[in-house]
Amino acid sequence: MIKLTFRTDFCKGCGLCVDVCPKKILRIAPDTINKKGHHPAEITEMDKCIGCASCATMCPDCIIKIEKE
């Protein structure tokens, strides 16, 4: 079971993680705005995550933490 957590307030909504996700389960949250005024990244279907860390590898702001339970 993979768990992804986002340091949402550090996200600038660049979407590089969204693009690179092989399972297409990340998106830029259309209805949320963080402290910096960006729409942050979020995961839509956690159970489909394979923990490949592609998103975290491409994240320029180090906001993604990946854990395996």
Partner: peptide
């Protein structure tokens, strides 16, 4: 078990770089 997290050698502060600028990746 943590597979991926912010490295300790980076302080826990937001980077000033523009959205999508890859300076952040290189810092990491």
């Amino acid at each position: 078990m943590v597979i991926f997290d912010k490295p300790k050698a980076l302080l826990d502060v937001p980077l000033h770089y523009c959205p999508g600028c890859t300076h952040g990746i290189i810092h990491r």
